[in-house]
Design a binder for these strands. Structure first.
Length: 288
DNA sequence: TATATTGTTACACC
DNA sequence: TGGTGTAACAATAT
């Protein structure tokens, strides 16, 4: 499930191979992947990929001519790069099992690059999207999506975080962490991990948090996200980086999807509870 | 075949 | 009014 660290990993792996490349054309195999408000996708033809950015869970390919291609992977999207000479390569070394077998039945869009290289967008659920727009319209789009500040930009000050908590005193902390307008980029996995590291129950109401507890949560957010990026993201089922490789963060998860297993800290069983129709995982003993 | 899955949004309620 | 929680929705695998 691509959250901020997974999208960032895709960005980093993709950056090495597609920046300064030319797009020959986009081949759309599933029309609904192209966002309703997208400019005609054929406009990507003959454009150069100038840069690749990330904003929250969005990937943004800046193209020549003032265009930007915005890609959201949602739950099951993948962006896999394949070089023309077969497999996938980093520094000339093919990776075993890289982009083998592509396209497959889940391939929705193929970006054909020059020299015969390809970028495959695969998505089992078809929830992801491509949206082409003019680069100068990006800020407007971010606004409309109500994206809060980036948690790793040092722009989210503790003051600001406190303000957000004050604004919704009765909300459970987990719901606040998942709210993209508060801090953008956290999803279900890392919201649970943040609460565990902070030692806070996901059900705690914002106004019940002592300042010391607020600080623990505030610090855990970048801590967890940085670790996850370092481990190249979490692969539960579908997530792959753009070389087709799974992430390594799942080995370091303390609570997510560990229902019924012992807490690493105290040995009590990790429990699962629905919060806002999402499953939250936590240790009843360690998290107060 | 019913269920679980999650990011996002719509909506009902207090 | 606006904060809050819940459900619906997308589509598929199991």
């Amino acid at each position: 499930m691509p959250e901020l660290p997974e999208v960032e990993t895709v960005r980093r792996t993709l950056k090495k191979v597609i920046v300064n490349r030319f797009v020959r054309k986009a081949r759309v195999l599933e029309k609904k992947i192209i966002h309703q408000e997208s400019l005609p996708i054929k406009s990507v033809s003959k454009k150069r990929i100038v840069a690749i950015h990330r904003r929250a869970k969005l990937l943004i390919l800046d193209l020549s001519g003032g265009y930007s291609l915005v890609i959201h992977l949602k739950m099951t999207g993948q962006l896999i790069y394949q070089s023309a000479f077969g497999g996938v390569a980093i520094g000339g070394h093919p990776i075993e099992g890289g982009a083998v077998g592509l396209p497959n039945k889940f391939t929705r869009v193929i970006l054909e690059l020059n020299k015969g290289d390809k970028l495959y967008f695969n998505d089992i659920r078809k929830f992801g999207y491509f949206r082409l727009l003019m680069t100068h319209k990006l800020p407007e789009m971010f606004n409309r999506l109500k994206l809060g500040p980036e948690p790793l930009d040092n722009k989210v000050t503790f003051r600001r975080f406190q303000k957000m908590l004050k604004k919704r005193p009765r909300s459970q902390i987990k719901n606040i962490l998942l709210d993209q307008s508060v801090i953008s980029g956290l999803g279900n996995i890392y919201a649970d991990e943040v609460n565990y590291q902070a030692g806070i129950k996901p059900t705690r109401r914002a106004k019940s948090l002592k300042v010391s507890e607020q600080k623990k949560i505030f610090q855990a957010i970048p801590d967890i996200l940085r670790l996850a990026i370092k481990k190249r993201g979490t692969t539960i089922q579908d997530y792959r980086d753009s070389f087709g490789q799974p992430g390594g963060m799942q080995k370091y998860l303390k609570v997510y999807q560990r229902t019924g297993q012992p807490c690493f800290r105290c040995g009590h069983v990790i429990i699962r509870k629905k919060i806002g129709s999402r499953s939250a995982h936590y240790c009843k003993h360690c998290q107060k």
